[in-house]
Amino acid sequence: MRVDFVNLVWYNLYMYNHKEISNRLATAIDCALKKVDDDILRLLKEAYANEDNPRAKWALAQIIENDEIALAHNCYPCQDTGVAMLFVTVGQNATFDGSLENALTEGVRLGYADARKSIAHPLTRINTGDNTPAVIYYDVVDGDGLKVDFLAKGAGSENTSCVKMLTPSKGADGIVSAVCDIVKQAGANPCPPLLLGVGVGGTMDKACLLSKKALLRKCGQYSADTEVAKLEKRILDEINALGIGAQGLGGKHTALACAVEIAPTHIGMLPVAVTIQCHSARHTKVRF
């Protein structure tokens, strides 16, 4: 029997328009860079109300005022508009009328038109001039959907992010103490109060990726997995007992939230990665 490939394509595959991808991504990035996540603002206000340390209160009051000024004036809450990170979930049946990667890159370029251009060659340090390339990760799934999670990653906090390769014998206690060591080492530098994305398991690189994906979760929401949620609460409590506080000035609020993502790992490994995110969390999701 003759198979009509043209009709097969027409009926079963969805085709995305590259210009629409670029334009919608650009608009979403532009909006996201000018607005701190609502959940963060709520957590900051709760932290201010619960804080006793006058210096930490001094800093928290300015952070809250800053985020409200940015919202009222439609300007960037933080000058470090970051590296553009894109986490793309694409259905294996999706098709495109052009290069998906080029469409995403163009979206980043347009979305950063008014923002700071922070991307440079690692050796010559010459700026690329348009904040590209973005850091892009793809997950291929069933179906024909296309979803992009955007995260603006600033350097001050990313420079303090870290991965530790623990041995399995260290267990949950070892994970908590590794996260505490990384946050202690970071001190005031990453602009606390922080959000912590923690990746546990996989390989070294997989743990790092999980620690980034953990930051895509709604801020302050614990994992649906009760064991993981227990670990998240324990990490958050122990981090906030460190006394680093807002901007390293002391007090009870070193971190506002902690999200852990896990993956199966080797019988001989326990990778733990921590992505440190500053309070100026700017991210968004686009479903095409």
């Binding site: 800053n66 940015a70 300007c75 960037y76 809450p77 933080c78 000058q79 470090d80 508009t81 008014d114 923002a115 700071r116 350097a155 001050g156 420079n159 530098n189 990453p190």
Partner: peptide, 23 residues
């Protein structure tokens, strides 16, 4: 220690917070 966002037309400067001094 600061590197601001680009200045919008009609404004004095862009957003201009401090960067990490340790660098």
């Amino acid at each position: 220690y600061a590197g601001p966002t680009p200045t919008k037309k009609g404004e004095i400067i862009g957003s201009c917070g401090p960067t990490t001094s340790a660098r």
